[in-house]
Write a protein that binds this DNA or RNA. Structure first.
Length: 553
DNA sequence: TTAGGGTTAG
């Protein structure tokens, strides 16, 4: 038996993710009468799960008469990793009815599944069960809880779990630092980091990543640079996760020179780091360089994945270069990536933004499975092309198919209303968004509503809408209102709105120029001069430049 | 007798 174990164990280690090999090994176990042994069954379940075949894994599980906690955990984890959360939860509930007690790994796995399924109610319930079973202070269970609460935006509850532990280990410290990182509380993350150092714990790659997560924009660049320095000092600057996060952090801070320097500092950047750099160029508006690096990646013989392709397609959409888009579409087809919903939706978006709506719709219709992202892409495309009623028909089709709309769906519909000037339809969908679908209006929804109402001359209603919002009102919403005042020539209201904008951002020049244009329209040249004199720092307008790319048959 | 793995990136 021992010889057989060693033989099989070496097989298990090198088998990889090939279903054929897993099946071969499973057959070997059956032949050796070992397939019902809980240890081997656990291994086979893991291998089937790794090859993406959870159903086979469940089949193995069903045939085992004596189920150990390892066996239960392996199948629960298999379902959770396959994002089949309902199966994972029902298996966990079944486990509770047996005499096998869930251990700290079971709870850690179920807790993570709760957060990935955005289920805070269940998370609290599972947390309660863990406490009752005496695992409320277990470090494995607690680090999973801290992460789960943080990812659900409940960072205060995460900190309560953390402070319940008298001597947190490094993973637990990292979990809370990352928790504050996701939530954007860089100062609290730093406090915890300092406390961790005082407790004698040395940072690792996870710690650095946790700190970098909170660097959201250029206002926190000094924090980002400090953390970068820390990674150099600790020798963690070659950690793959740290490197990619440094690249994306500098990209968020719009410091592409630093991002590129980090990228060049490592010997063989992985695909995520390449993507971070390409997405960085794309997000900072340097679409040409984004595509240049995509080509470079291709020339180095690396294969782009679905995330990278979607990011590149977004760049192409902004450049409105359908020729390049078609090239990438060819790449997608050649590499069998068209079945991915994210890629197909990016193709729909690219074609419609390049002006080829019919090609976007044809990609959409050829998709085997459409989800909320793909519906949003096609609704947005229809709206951008002025086909508002078709956009609403698509929305109805989405509802009939049981796809639940999200914030972006309503942005796309409101945008469609703006393009077509459908004021009443826009009012109705804005109401339905909250009342019928429980989606809270975000600043972009208010921007569309203000544009829609203001564009139709309903400035008073638009103004009242902004007045109904709690302070401080988002700059974009007030800016949209000011822009409407400009087109309607309402200088009195423009002054009120502009005043509110100047109060929140005294240095902003865009809105001052807008107000000066409104005064100019009224012939109030003294006021124009006053504003222009007020704009200091040598504001200079460069001549506009644009081009149109033609495609002729 | 063997064993899982809680925290990280585009």
């Amino acid at each position: 038996m021992l010889i057989r174990f060693h033989l099989l164990h070496s097989e298990l280690c090198k088998i990889g993710k090939s279903l054929k090999r897993v099946k071969q090994l499973h057959a070997l176990l059956i032949k050796n009468c070992l397939s019902e042994d809980p240890f081997y069954a656990t291994q086979i379940i893991r291998l089937y799960a790794a090859s993406g075949h959870v159903n086979y894994a469940h089949h193995v599980f069903d045939r085992i008469p004596t189920r150990t906690v390892y066996l239960w955990n392996s199948l629960i984890r298999a379902y959770a990793q396959a994002q089949r959360f309902r199966n994972a939860f029902s298996l966990f509930n079944n486990m509770l009815t047996t005499n096998v007690r869930p251990d700290n790994f079971t709870y850690a796995c179920v807790v993570r599944a709760c957060s990935e399924n955005f289920d805070s109610a269940r998370l609290r319930l599972v947390h309660g069960k863990a406490v009752v079973s005496g695992l409320g202070l277990d470090s494995i269970c607690c680090s999973a809880l801290v992460t789960a609460y943080s990812k659900l935006g409940l960072v205060n509850e995460a900190s309560v779990v953390f402070y319940g532990i008298s001597e947190p280990d490094l993973v637990l410290w990292n979990s809370l630092i990352s928790g504050y990182g996701y939530s954007g509380f860089w100062d609290k993350g730093m406090q915890i980091f300092n406390a961790m150092q005082r407790a004698g714990k040395r940072p690792d790659g996870y710690t650095i990543v946790g700190l970098l997560l909170s660097v959201a924009d250029s206002s926190l660049l000094s924090i980002g640079r400090g953390t970068h320095g820390l990674s150099l000092k600790s020798g963690l600057d070659i950690n793959a996760h740290v490197v990619s996060l440094l690249v994306s952090m500098y990209s968020r801070c719009e410091c592409m020179t630093s991002a590129y320097k980090v990228f060049c500092s490592i010997f063989q950047p992985d695909l995520v780091t390449w993507s971070a750099l390409i997405a960085g160029y794309s997000q900072t508006g340097d679409y040409v360089r984004a595509l240049l690096f995509f080509r470079k990646l291709h020339m180095e013989g690396k294969k782009a994945d679905t995330v990278l392709i979607s990011s590149v397609l977004a760049s192409i959409a902004q450049l409105a270069n359908v020729g390049l888009g078609r090239e990438i579409h060819g790449y997608v087809l050649r590499h069998g990536l068209e079945s991915d919903v994210m890629v197909s939706s990016a193709l729909v978006d690219m074609y419609s933004k390049c002006g080829f709506l019919h090609l976007g719709i044809s990609v959409f219709e050829s998709m085997t499975k459409q989800n909320v992202i793909s519906y949003n892409s096609v609704i947005s495309g229809l709206g951008l092309h002025g086909c508002a009623y078709d956009a609403f028909r698509m929305f109805d089709r989405m509802l009939k198919k049981g796809v639940v709309p999200d914030e972006s769906t309503f942005s796309a519909l409101l945008c469609a209303c703006c393009h077509a000037g459908l004021v009443q339809v826009g009012r109705e969908i804005f109401m339905r968004m909250k009342d019928e679908f429980g989606v809270e209006a975000r600043p972009e929804h208010y921007v569309y509503m203000v544009k829609l109402l203001g564009g139709a001359g309903e400035l008073e209603e638009a103004y009242n809408l902004t007045q109904s919002l709690p302070e401080p009102v988002d700059k974009g919403i007030l800016g949209a209102l000011l822009s409407c005042c400009n087109s309607c020539g309402k200088s009195e209201l423009a002054e009120i709105v502009a005043q509110r904008l100047f109060e929140s951002d005294p240095d902003d020049r865009v809105y001052r120029v807008m107000l000066s244009n409104i005064y100019a329209g009224d012939g109030r040249w003294d006021d124009v001069k006053k504003i222009r004199d007020n704009i200091t720092g040598g504001l200079r307008k460069f001549p506009g430049l644009s081009w149109i790319e033609g495609h002729f048959c």
